[in-house]
């Protein structure tokens, strides 16, 4: 990727990407749509665009967990599990105690997963990757035990979630009603709020942030709890979209959510990036997935591709930005 280009354009490209990180992503997105139009001209329609948006929304929301944690140099690999837990609990508890109670319990579970992550990262200083992987495993175990106790109660999907997940208004998916305020909030919070700036500060230089009086453990604890809550919300939306309660519901989103944040220009080492790029990254991945389906690429090939994208983009960013 990098070896073909010579040094000077590379440096210029690097400056361009640092100054204006979203521009290459928009170009890439439209290039992909162009290739898709060449492959199958009949596919491009208003309905297709609206469907792509609908599929991209849960991915973009789950990728918010990765973006925010990656700003501090972390990652949240339990996000997919937290989303699954929230969705499964909602679906199975609704027939018993009604939708509001079920959603309340589900969000509490998601928050608990996030808080355990936060405690591990903030106090024991475990690497977030290992910590979130571990809580993900434990949560999956708890879900299996829970599943046995509710096996007879059937499932029910709250009407609001189904409306959000599958409905359309004026040709646009209703999920946007949740996603647009959510995205505006995150975009505002990451740059304008004190909490958002602390994330960048810790990610750029944790020691410096600590010396300037930031209580790093508080930020970590709040961050991972927030990440759990966002993952829980994603799970609820996703449940309304697919309308099946399974134990591996949102797990297929786990890996693409990391890829979406990385493609969106958020540095996995912290301190650089933002949610705007992540939204574009999620759209790019969704269009890419359509293309792979058209080309009948098997699941294995997709995983290889996602892994390769993460590695290539990270390596490219290091080449472009670490020049003395």
């Amino acid at each position: 990727m990098t070896s073909a280009t010579t040094d000077a354009p590379l440096a210029r490209l690097g400056r361009l990407m640092v100054d204006n990180p979203l521009l290459p992503l928009v170009v890439l997105l439209f290039a992909l749509i162009g290739v898709l139009a060449l492959l199958n001209p009949a596919i491009l329609s208003m309905f297709w665009a609206s469907n792509t948006l609908k599929i991209a929304i849960p991915l973009a929301m789950l990728a918010a967990c990765q973006t925010l944690t990656m700003l501090t140099g972390g990652i949240d690999l339990s996000a997919g599990t937290a989303a699954t837990v929230a969705a499964y609990v909602t679906a199975t508890a609704t027939p018993l105690i009604g939708a509001p109670g079920a959603i309340g319990i589900a969000m509490t579970c998601a928050l608990a997963i996030g808080m355990v992550n936060g405690v591990g990262v903030a106090f024991a200083r475990v690497h977030p990757l290992i910590m979130t992987l571990g809580t993900g495993l434990i949560a999956t175990g708890c879900l299996l035990v829970y599943q046995r106790s509710v096996i007879s109660t059937g499932t029910e999907y709250p009407a609001l979630l189904v409306w959000l997940g599958t409905g359309r208004t004026l040709g646009l998916p209703n999920g946007l009603a949740l996603f647009i305020p959510f995205a505006i909030l995150i975009l505002w919070a990451q740059r304008r709020s004190g909490f958002g700036r602390l994330l960048y500060a810790i990610g750029s230089n944790e020691a410096a942030a600590r010396l300037s009086g930031v209580r790093v453990w508080q930020v970590h604890l709040a961050l991972y709890s927030l990440s759990g809550v966002i993952a829980g919300l994603t799970g609820l939306l996703y449940l309304g979209m697919v309308k099946t309660a399974s134990l591996s519901l949102a797990l297929p989103l786990d890996l693409p959510s990391v890829a979406a944040a990385v493609i969106g220009g958020t540095s996995i080492f912290g301190g650089r990036g933002g949610y705007g790029g992540t939204i574009l990254g999620a759209l790019i991945l969704t269009v890419l997935a359509t293309m792979l389906t058209l080309l009948q690429m098997p699941e294995g090939g997709r995983r290889i591709l996602y892994g390769a994208i993460i590695l290539a983009v990270t390596a490219l960013y290091i080449r472009l930005t670490d020049r003395g």
Binding site: V258, P298, E299, G300, R303, G307, L311, T314
Partner: peptide, 20 residues
């Protein structure tokens, strides 16, 4: 790229290879 990121990406790649 740090080892933890590379091997995370390769985790996905090897998973895919096994499935293929």
């Amino acid at each position: 790229v740090p080892d933890i990121v590379v091997t995370l990406a390769m985790l996905f790649v090897w998973q895919g290879v096994a499935l293929l």
